[in-house]
Amino acid sequence: MIVLLILSVLLVALLVYLFNQWSRNRMPSRKQRDRVLREVQQDMDGWSADLVKIHREELDLFSLTQEKQVIKRGTGTTAKGTFTTIFHEPVVSYSYRRYLGKQVNALLYARTADHDYVYWTEKGKTRLEIDGQPVGTIDGSTLLGERTGMELARIEATPRENYLPVSVGKREVAALKTLPVSTDDPLSQRAFEFIPDDLNDKEEQLLLSLTVRELVGRSLG
């Protein structure tokens, strides 16, 4: 009887543990997402270093190097990291959570000194918000406008030599290198082949919205 009682207690404890794991790693409903996002933002407040403002020079120096990257894999995947310039100045921090599901269900939150980027991916489809405002849907590596459904920005799928062209509207605004993202790389490879001198704020935000997502994806494998 005692053995049966112990087995029953262990079974109940296991079921409770599995239920908690399932609940923690289940894609939040739309009503729960604001709360989940606030939790992620508060966690980043206490974790992320003071970020250097991104101007034209910082984009030109933006590197493939990350500092303090932490990846945890289990029932779900979580990750955090900070992208730096080639001089190891922190410029973009992010937090990533992948939830259960046959298709990709995930939250990616990224921040610069001036802007917040939120990517909710549900069943493989990603919706992007910048500074709390809906921007559009990312289909593959193409950002489509929220209201118009028209292309706003794109990372080309086919490499041109050793980089991927990035365009905003009809203008090519960067060439993203195809090298893998590294951590604590003393050489600090530059992420972009070129950035035009007259890049405006809207182009910068859309450029970062696609490239940060691409680079986080590379670092997670």
Score class of each variant (00 low, 15 high):
L187R: 12
P90Y: 05
V91G: 01
N20Q: 14
L51W: 03
V9D: 06
E122A: 09
A175C: 08
E39Y: 10
L220R: 00
L100P: 08
S48K: 09
R26P: 10
V181I: 01
V166E: 06
V52I: 09
K72L: 08
L7W: 12
L143W: 11
L128D: 08
V104F: 07
A191T: 00
Q103M: 12
E146G: 11
A110R: 06
R147P: 09
L100M: 13
N200F: 00
V212L: 08
N25W: 12
P165A: 04
D50Q: 13
P90V: 05
R111S: 07
L143M: 13
L51V: 03
E151N: 14
Q42Y: 15
H115Y: 07
L107V: 04
V91A: 01
G217R: 04
L215K: 06
A175K: 04
F192Q: 00
Q41G: 09
Y96P: 00
A106S: 04
L208H: 02
P28R: 03
A113I: 02
K31M: 15
L176T: 03
L37E: 13
I71C: 02
Y119N: 06
R154L: 14
A49D: 13
S8G: 14
K102Q: 15
L206D: 04
Q103F: 11
G140W: 03
L187C: 05
K170L: 13
G74Q: 05
S8R: 13
L128K: 08
V168G: 02
R26N: 11
D60S: 10
T75N: 12
T178G: 03
Q133T: 15
L143V: 11
V9Q: 10
R56H: 11
W22C: 12
R127H: 15
Y94P: 01
D131F: 05
L18V: 11
N162C: 03
Q103G: 10
T137R: 14
E172M: 12
Y17I: 11
T75R: 15
L64W: 01
L207D: 01
T142S: 13
T78S: 03
E156P: 08
F83T: 01
A191W: 00
F62N: 02
G101C: 06
V16Q: 10
L51R: 02
H115W: 08
L107I: 06
L164P: 03
N25F: 10
V135Y: 12
G46W: 09
I86G: 07
E146V: 14
G217N: 08
P165W: 04
D114E: 07
S8P: 10
F87S: 14
L152G: 08
S188V: 07
L64R: 00
T126W: 02
T75I: 15
R33Q: 14
R190D: 00
Y117D: 09
E204S: 02
E156V: 12
S219K: 07
F194H: 02
A113V: 03
T75S: 14
R73E: 11
D139T: 12
G145F: 11
I71T: 04
I155W: 07
R56D: 09
Q103D: 15
D131Y: 06
R171H: 04
D50V: 13
